[in-house]
């Protein structure tokens, strides 16, 4: 089902408010909804919420034979499930344009940005490598699900720990987590995605982290995936109103401090969780 477009009064009011530099949830134009990150009992299980948008990400690893053309590299796959649970706009089995763009962006941001060192996932070249599988479940969509899903995905990778292994000759010994502490993945950098929404009125500035209403009323979305080291990983603007190069550069500069804040928040939450997991034995 195509999502119904907002009613005329909703549309007019939102545009009026934006013209007066007001957003309906009281945020500034360049404020994110503060993400809340919760970890499950398992390593690599993360629930991420931005306002009422909620996404669950889970990482699991298993051993497989590597691809013949890349015998030294592990495999990372991303499965995103956008079910009708998130919103009645989504249908099972028939992905809408929006859903396809979300899953492709996830692939670009998390996998093709080479955030995870694939060579360190190799166990025995040509015979055994780790296969990491990231599953993303979208629980509720209240706008900007892409950013929330990307955040959940990268945090899940950072939170995940794989069992330690030992290779003696051709034999692989997997150490039980109770025996030897599991080790974290080698992560080069952590990209975060930020989405900006443009509006038809040229005097209205773009807003970051649009709500569902803003997203539906926008005439174009620009997604920037960037890491805290100011490196742009993905920049996507699929259709919508034309944007001047200056405007894109300006938004990239706007994204830099936001991404740094996000990175700090994620690191702080991971540290907190890690502290909680420590059990002292005397």
């Amino acid at each position: 089902m195509r999502p119904p477009s907002p009613s005329i009064p909703e549309k007019e009011f939102t545009y009026d408010a934006l013209k007066q530099s007001l957003r309906l949830d009281g945020r500034g134009f360049l404020d994110l909804r503060t993400p809340s990150i919760n970890f499950g009992p398992e390593l690599g299980w993360v629930e991420c919420a931005m306002g009422k948008t909620r996404v669950i990400a889970q990482v699991d690893a298993k051993m497989v034979k590597p691809l013949p053309e890349r015998p030294f590299e592990g495999i990372v796959t991303i499965h995103s499930e956008i079910s009708p649970m998130a919103s009645s706009d989504y249908e099972l089995g028939r992905p809408s344009e929006e859903e396809i763009s979300i899953s492709r962006m996830l692939d670009k941001v998390l996998r093709r940005s080479d955030a995870i060192d694939k060579e360190s996932l190799c166990i025995l070249s040509g015979q055994r490598v780790w296969h990491l599988r990231l599953t993303i479940h979208c629980i509720a969509d209240a706008g900007n699900m892409l950013d929330c899903a990307c955040l959940a995905g990268i945090v899940a990778f950072k939170h995940f720990r794989r069992p330690e292994i030992e290779v003696i000759g051709d034999e692989v010994i997997i150490h039980d987590p109770t025996e030897r502490a599991p080790i974290p993945l080698a992560i080069h950098h952590s990209p975060f995605c930020l989405t900006f929404a443009f509006f038809p009125d040229p005097s209205t500035r773009p807003v970051v982290d649009p709500t569902l209403l803003e997203q539906r009323l926008s005439t174009g979305l620009l997604s920037i995936a960037m890491n805290a080291q100011r490196e742009i990983c993905v920049l996507q603007k699929a259709g919508g109103i034309p944007t001047a190069p200056d405007e894109v550069l300006r938004l990239v500069n706007v994204a830099v401090p936001l991404v740094k804040d996000l990175d700090q928040l994620v690191e702080a939450r991971l540290k907190e969780d890690w502290q909680e997991r420590k059990v002292e034995i005397r």
Partner: peptide, 16 residues
């Protein structure tokens, strides 16, 4: 719930 006031700010306050 439909809300109408004179000012946009006031309507936003009611919504929130």
């Amino acid at each position: 719930v439909w809300v109408n006031t004179k000012e946009v700010r006031q309507t936003i306050a009611v919504i929130r």
